[in-house]
Design a protein around this nucleic acid. Sequence first.
DNA 1: ATCCTCCCCTAC
DNA 2: TAAGGTAGGGGAGGAT
Length: 1175
Amino acid sequence: MNILAGQERCPFCRKTEFAKHLHAHCLRKHPLSYEAACRYFDKMLVLLKEQEATTVVTTIEDVAEIESLNGDWHVDEWTASGDQLRLEMIDSDEDPDLDKYDSPQSPDPEPPSAASAGSQSETDASEHSYGDNRQQHVVKIGLRQHVKCQLCSETFTMASHAVTHHLRDHLRERGIGISRRRLQAAYARDNRVQVALLRCTLCKTTFLERPDRRHECPTRPTKKSAQSVSADRRNSSTRSSASHSTDSRSSSSSSSCSCSSCSSTSSSSKNGGRGSRHGAATVKSYDSRAGNRARWCIHGPLKFCKFWRLGNCRNGAKCGYAHSLCPKDGRCEDEHYGQFTKDRTKEQTDGELSDLFAGVAIFVNGYTEPSASELRRLMMKHGGAYHMYELPNTTHVVVSNLPKSKIDKLKPGEKLVTAAWITDSIAAGRLLPDVDYLLYGEKQGCAALNKFVRPADQTPSRSPAMLPPPAVDEQSNSRSLPKTSDPQFLKEYYARSRLHFISTWGQKMKRLVDELRAASDGTFPGRQLLAERIDVGDGSAVLEPVFVHIDMDCFFVSVGLASRPHLRGKPVVVTSAKGVGAETMPGQQDKTSSWAEISSCNYEARAAGLKNGMLLGKALKACPDLTAIPYEFEAYQEASIKLYHILASYTLNIRAVSCDEMYIDLTELCRDSSISDPLKVVAVIRQQIADETGCSASAGLGPNMLVARLATRRAKPNGQFYVPQKDVHSFMAEQRIADLPGIGRNIREKLESHFGSLEKCADLEAIPVGRLKATFGPKHGQQLNDLCRGIDNSTIKDTTERKSVSCDINYGIRLQSDAEAVEFLKNLAVEVTKKLDEINMAGRMMTMKLMTRQADAPEKAQKYMGHGLCDTVSRSTTLSRPIRDDRQIASTAISLFRQLSPVVVDVRGVAIMMTKLESTSKPSPGDRRQISHFCVKPTGAAPPVALVAPIVQRAQRPAARHEEVAVRSAASPFDPEVLAALPDDIKREIAGHPSQFQMPRVERPHVHRAESRALADLSLLLPDGSKCDKNVLAELPEELRSEVRRACRVRPRTETTPKLNELLTAFPIAGLPSRPLVTTPQLRGECDYEAVKKLLLEILAHEQPSDQVVADLIEYFRQLIVFGNLKSAGCFLRIMDRILAERESDVWKTAQQLIIEAIQNAAVQHYGCRFEWRS
DNA sequence: ATCCTCCCCTAC
DNA sequence: TAAGGTAGGGGAGGAT
Ligand SMILES: Nc1ccn([C@H]2C[C@H](O)[C@@H](COP(=O)(O)OP(=O)(O)OP(=O)(O)O)O2)c(=O)n1
Ligand SMILES: [Mg+2]
Ligand SMILES: [Mg+2]
Ligand SMILES: [Mg+2]
């Protein structure tokens, strides 16, 4: 199998150096995460190597790239001062003559001194004999030096992508975030940078320093033949020390070297190949952090957790546990990624770890000082456990006060302590007796929770349909969610999702402001009211600009309480969790573990530590007296519209932010009306809001929007606060950094990890902007700099037009089959189309985003029907022209979905996003007139009914229901023999991810994953004379094959692609009937050319095509294109063209256009060029 | 430099 | 049970 060697062309991209390019494909072109791609590639290399005993690494870049998987580049020191950056690497050689290290008599290797940096020799890479077959490839890389690969003699210049890439990774491991780009810039300035890499070619152990001469490669010189290696792999019992696991992920647990001294270190070599390290005392690798002890986080063994590398954590938000310190030994229930439970523990770099709290497990109940997250960090650091919830083995509950409710919750054997117990113990350096900090109470009767207390003025007979969803059919029977693919599912979901509502309203309010501006006659009725209530035109007008930020206080709760005055003063939340009324259901359901989110909580509830977005269960623990009221979306919308109309009666210098929030620029009003005190104006406005909506609003005033917004925080609840320019500095200095808009949890943590604990803006101000930019990038750095100084030059007018339209559903997605997925995508496409129609735009680019269950996540998420722990992948495609037709959107979406080829049953979230929007001059067919929902003056008596007018349904076409031309694999999904032939570790991997493979799955027999096409595609695309042994590919794990397939599928986007017809010539195999096709495009079950032709002629004979027929044809042609059956596609298209040319029917003409357009889109997507079918 | 894709982050 | 949507800004890294 020489496909990887030499100059053989890549069957996919026609380039040479297959491995390199496949790797590149893996890295860039397919939707797996980078880490996963690397792993797969790595695995493949090992596999192929073992089978062929041929090196596949042909360039130094490959070596370096592979090494990056090990994280074995090592940065010894990093210093930065101002813009000067200096990197010093451990240097393996002060003496360029590396051979001397081989000789046993060579002087003891000294750790290289930093001073040696910059004195590099010409020798960049050398190979030296290490006795027998043991060899060291020493690759030195230095600035402005050429690096020569010993293997292929290819030379590279310094600061190659590969090098900066790895340096970047290593800096990240050390908590230093510095981009590749900046590293490269640093290289350009500092020629002392060097990197040394020493790697044993036999066992692949990598050294960062000169290897200890005691390194004894466990791989004996006897070069095994491919056969014997194979034999080894087929029978694990015969494995010898020379055939260590090829996959480090399993090597840590199961590979054991027959050599007694080997066991402890065998697990730490990621690329361990066939060897383990003996006596490699000088080895320094990032694995050494693990201390040779297998450690686990919730994702499995620590060393394979892709979230582990701090700072390198693309999805870091999702690993909620301190790696290696997971309180539950690798399993945990905390999948919630929201702001309150995500609680990713920061790296423990400050101070010593200890076992102070060994055996102690705390649960923090309510507000504490220090905060729960700090307590958690402390517990992690000092050997204790931190429980998100009260668990049976919780030993201490930490509280700061002791309301009865907390005593009520006390379980036997549990101790209530103050946080001081923990802090004092740490300060004392020993575990102080908890008895001094205990807060005991007698267990008393359980406090009952009033749930969903009805509005005081309403009888229970009020339509229950008005509870959360105003408009949902009752016929959809209550208990469970509709099937994901059911059109009812989306409808119902959108009727109940608060986030959908507030998101939609946010957009609508922006439009409302635009409409009000457009409709304005220049008069402002509100200013008359102003004139009545305050002195106008008396004083001198304010000179400086005045911006006001207005935000309703706990908006949803306020609206809800307007009809429930008896609940005022009590802690109240709005949530979807349906508790039955306490009065009707005596057995109070226990909601203390509810995963429902709180939408809004009032200020009484906030006193107990509640926040918007918190989980109800957690909230109830912190505040057992809580009252929950249901959503009243109509009422929120009404209040919101009133709010905007009120403001618009004073000024149209409005920036809509959300349904309960906006900025206004009062400068003009104050100047025009000669008002000296803007606070008086604001007071009048707020009073009017309270009068008309029954809800309070707060306002912040400042010289810009940023300061105004922060002033609002101070003003809340039901207040106002003005920060004039002269006070800005002092005001800003005391603002908490976390309160700055735009600084969320992650950025705050990153800030802290880089610059230590920062509390106030004054602390942030002290950090030079250059450092911020170096850490966060130019824009974010500047933003941070400006934020903490209260600098904000943006204006009220929001001139930017819409950039994207998307529909995301990440809840309730449970798909059983490909057909269901297609149905759902069609439904979703309709929603996207509606949104595009609303704004009269069409999109030229589509992005599909999928969330899929993480391999080790349970199938049932903790939150009912939630997405659980997921990986996210996305894929986008640029279309030949903007589209806004639901069928085209659906077809593109289906295609993208197929390209992402997820395990359908594991899909937990789907999003379609249209970008590159262009406004459509001409409304598309079936388009409705734009309806202005909002330019209706709300009056107290007549609620703006028009505002909630249901969206006009599109003329219902029969749902383009077509049998997906199912791609079925004739072959058995996964051949057990192939499985048996795989190396043990691969088998284990397979066993660990059963869903990745088509193992017999009785429960889901109908799932035909797109991967089943992999082999077919390969067999179609591989040139006949290829030396590529298909059997080898067949032996790859299926997931690997699918990677290869994807790599093949993904058209090279950037390089010039051969014309499709040339491709056809280049791969004439596609149409050959002799070639056994594993899968075949089918039209109505027919796949034979003549049969399809006959069918096509029949179809074309009809007077008019049905939508169904058009959909079938589109899908069939799409399949032909995807499968490379271009000849057939061309023939059929020409037949169709010929026949339809003499046809009168416009319907057929349109259909033909649709079909051709779909085909061209598919062609562009898959081949990068249009299909010239007429020739 | 600047573009593109695939993310990540934040806010309501 | 539960309804975890969306838009915009921006960074990383690759291609050109
Ligand atoms: N995670 C969140 C945040 C907000 N909202 C909804 C409910 C809020 O009432 C409304 C407005 O959000 P705000 O941030 O303005 O919060 P509140 O108005 O509830 O409180 P505040 O007084 O702090 O403005 O948006 C939500 O459903 N979920
Ligand atoms: Mg609010
Ligand atoms: Mg809720
Ligand atoms: Mg708000």
